[in-house]
Computed example of a mutant assay.
Amino acid sequence: MISGTSHDGIDVAVVDFERDGSVLRGRVGHTASTPYPGGLRARLIAALPPAPTTLAEVCVLDTLIGQSFAAAAAEAIARGGPVDLIVSHGQTVFHWVEGAHALGTLQIGQPAWIAERTGTPVLSDVRIRDITAGGHGAPLVSVLDGLLLGAYEGGAAALNLGGIANMTVVRGDSLYAYDLGPANALIDAVVTSRGLNPRGFDEDGRIAAAGQVDERLLEVLLDEPYYGLAAPKSTGKELFHLGYVTAALARAGREVGDADLVATLTELTVRTVARDVLAAGIGTLVVSGGGCRNPVIMAGLRAALPGVRVVPSDDLGAPADDKEAIAFALIGWLSAHGLPGTVPGGTGAAGARVLGTLTPGAGPLVLPEPLAEPPRSLVLSR
């Protein structure tokens, strides 16, 4: 279960894993996306950086989001059947990065509400152990990408277009991953603030398609120092938020209309992603996340990457809208079996770490026998 940087709701996937020699097979059962109630989402947005907030509000949001996750978990169990473990990523509200180093991260959504509601043990707080080992705690989906993409000759990359774009590049046993920059974060911020779509995003890319790219503003946006930092690196809405767009407009000396602004921010995503994909020199790009449902982004990427095969993650058995939820289910399976949930090249950590904090369910906390060796590959099916 995860609510990502788009903070629009909770994605859930029920996955049944079975070890088959060196191969891990995962059958993806029930999947769902549960929107946050409108009032809760508005309250969450109002509390996110750079807005000021209080510890009292953080406590209230921790409870309300935990209860929302608990309701989503109960619904998933009712529809998908009993589960052995629930993995809750929760809602990221702050990712502390200074001097290109991640120093802390905060996800809220109290897991005890989930354990109490379902009677099932909950693994949560999955990013921080990697950060304590010198990593960025992101992108954790890289552990899934490494198992899925290792067989591609010539190398492949997995691109997730959520609020933030992240990419995992895999060549055999070699893997590296990092956050590229904003995918939907800036687009969503403008769409929401200007009331362009009550759902808070550019549905089917219609707004961008109606506008023209403002080249001067795009030039200012592309001058962001983050893009020049070496990987591994991570970022979030602490940097890429509505105020960031306002400041860029001021530097560009522009007043840009709604459609043109969304078109420009969409082109920013295309340019920054395409540049790094070309630099990676891979032959296949597997795309997931909400941005892969935006035809303007996808058409832009295919035009900018003529020598690269661009396919949705659905082709690998990981539905594009559910891939991150599946990744956290995988992390739960790995942690339960005493196996690391990170690849050092994926986060920049000094070594791989077993992830998460466990909250017991209704009975004794019983874990499987630890496994000595991790799986070498992953096959997903429905």
Rank of each mutant, 00 (worst) to 15 (best):
A151W: 13
N160R: 09
G134N: 11
R79N: 14
H95I: 05
A115V: 08
L61V: 00
Q91G: 02
I77F: 07
L106K: 08
L103Q: 13
G134E: 10
P111A: 10
A112M: 08
Q91T: 03
H95Q: 10
Q110E: 15
G137Y: 08
I108P: 04
I65H: 01
V87T: 15
H136P: 05
I65C: 04
I65G: 02
G146W: 07
A73P: 00
Q91H: 12
A115R: 00
I108Y: 08
R79H: 14
T120Y: 04
I128M: 14
I86F: 02
D62A: 02
R117L: 05
P82W: 11
A78Y: 09
D130Y: 02
G81W: 12
T63G: 11
R79S: 14
A157W: 03
G104C: 05
V143C: 13
I86M: 03
I108N: 01
A133E: 13
G104W: 09
G155H: 09
R129L: 12
I65T: 03
G81N: 13
Q91R: 08
A76M: 11
G80S: 11
E98W: 03
L123D: 03
T105D: 07
T92I: 12
A71R: 14
A112S: 14
A156G: 06
G119H: 07
G104V: 05
W113T: 09
G146C: 02
A73Q: 05
L140I: 06
R127D: 09
P121C: 08
H136S: 11
Q110Y: 11
F94Q: 10
G99E: 14
P139W: 06
P111E: 10
T105F: 00
V126R: 08
G119F: 07
A78D: 14
A158R: 04
D130K: 07
P121R: 01
Q67D: 10
A100I: 05
G135I: 01
G80M: 07
G155C: 06
G109Q: 01
S142G: 12
R127Y: 09
A70Y: 02
I114C: 06
G104D: 14
I77Y: 06
A112P: 00
E75W: 03
V126T: 13
A115K: 01
H89V: 01
P111C: 10
A157K: 04
G81E: 13
T63Q: 15
E98I: 09
L140W: 05
A73D: 03
S88L: 06
Q107G: 08
G104N: 13
E98L: 13
A76V: 09
G90N: 04
V83I: 11
T63W: 04
E98P: 05
Q107W: 09
G137S: 12
G146P: 07
L159W: 00
A72Q: 02
S68N: 00
D130A: 08
D62F: 06
A138T: 07
E153D: 15
W96Y: 14
E116A: 15
R117K: 14
L61W: 01
E116F: 09
T105Y: 00
G80H: 08
F69N: 01
W113D: 04
V83R: 04
L144N: 00
G154Q: 11
L64I: 00
G137D: 09
T63V: 12
G150R: 15
G155V: 08
L106N: 01
T132K: 13
G66C: 03
D130L: 03
G109V: 01
A115S: 14
D130G: 02
W96S: 13
L147S: 04
